[in-house]
Each structure stands twice: as C-alpha cells, then as structure tokens.
Amino acid sequence: MIRFDNVGLRYGNGPEILRDVTFHVLPGSFHFLTGPSGAGKTTLLRLLFMSLRPTRGLIFVFGENVSDLSAGGRSELRRRIGIVFQDFRLLDHLTTWENVALPLRVMGKKESQYKDDVTDLLRWVGLGERINAYPEILSGGEKQRAAIARAVIGRPELLLADEPTGNVDPVIGNRLLRLFVELNRLGTSVIIATHDHALMDQLNAPRLMLHNGHLHVR
C-alpha cells in the first residue's frame, strides 16, 4: 500500500530532516508514528499525503510512484486517504456538519446520499448537539472530533492522524482510538502520529520511531 525507499527530505539548503527512510505499510495494518518533538513526524505525514515531494528516494502510494503523478492523479489518491491535522484545518464559514460532509461533496455525491451518514457519525463522536455550530464556537476537543469525523467519513483506505488525541480528555481519547480500531477492522490502514505513550500502550501495534531523521520500526 505504502512504500518508502531511501527517502530523504530537506527544506531548501537546510539540513536533512529525514534521512534514508525506508518502510512498508501493508493493507489493513495499524501503526503508531512516534518520536520526540521536531523529529519530523508531521513532515513524514505530509510526504505520505503527497503535500511535500522528497528531496531523494522513492515513495509509492497505492502502488503509484508519487513523483510521476499529475495534480489530478494526486487528487484521486488523496480521496482514498483521510487525514487529521494537528491544527484541525476546519473551514470557519461552514457548519460542523458541512465541514464533515466536505470530502463527500468534493467527490460529487448528492446531499441526499450522505445526509444521514454525516449526522450519525457526528453523533457517534459526541457532536450530535453541535451539528449546526461553526468551528469558532467549538472547543479544541470538539474541533478535533469534527476533524477526525471529516477524515473518516469517506471510508478511506488509509487514515493519517497527527496527534489526534492531543486536545481531548482521556475518555474521548479512548473513544476516538476505538473509532480508529473499528475502521482498521473494516480494512482501513491507520497511521497515528503521537507521543502519547498511554495511548500507544493500549494497542499492540508496531511503532515507527523517528530519531535524528532516521526511522526505526519497533
């Protein structure tokens, strides 16, 4: 599903943030991506999501070499990937419901096809009462849950999450982890970037450890 071969990345003429990163992600797998702050977790997620190009090495996403992809080809692959950003990236002028429905709207689906699914998912993540609220009046935890709901609404084949439980209390954190596990059971590969050891300890999943730009699988 995902293959990194000797991938390196540097910003401009600066030092290499990632060096000789090589790993595979198999379909239906569950990984944690961890490491100290500034180790390059977000950068690695951005490479996985094709919003950055590697300075060297090869990246294959769903069997496609991302260096050879057109803008349209990248968009098609992104539709198969859900991503949760650390800073949520919700659109302030859309309601919670509209934000969550955005990936389906972009795919060209009709509202009648997904109306109930979006409402059900929002209820499941505890935002049933905040359906018509705008992001600016949501708390950090509520924004986090809305962002996760937006990432999973399209039943992605790969889910990338950057510190998804960083802004929520342990109860909601556990609930969100259950959602990720449930998705994983349904066939979605999951990569969660986190430095929350309590969260990682709850699952016996391989950990991709980033340190000094190098990646080790544990």
Binding site: F49, G72, S75, R78, L91, L102, P103, V106, M107, G108
Partner: peptide
C-alpha cells in the same frame, strides 16, 4: 488559500 489547501487535502480536483 487556506480553503484551497483544505480542498486539496480532501481530494478536490483543480476543476472543482
């Protein structure tokens, strides 16, 4: 620009 980035992330084509 932020909206355009989010649209890219959710798989929007240039045409959309």
């Amino acid at each position: 620009r932020e909206i355009i980035e989010v649209l890219h992330f959710v798989g929007a084509h240039e045409r959309f």
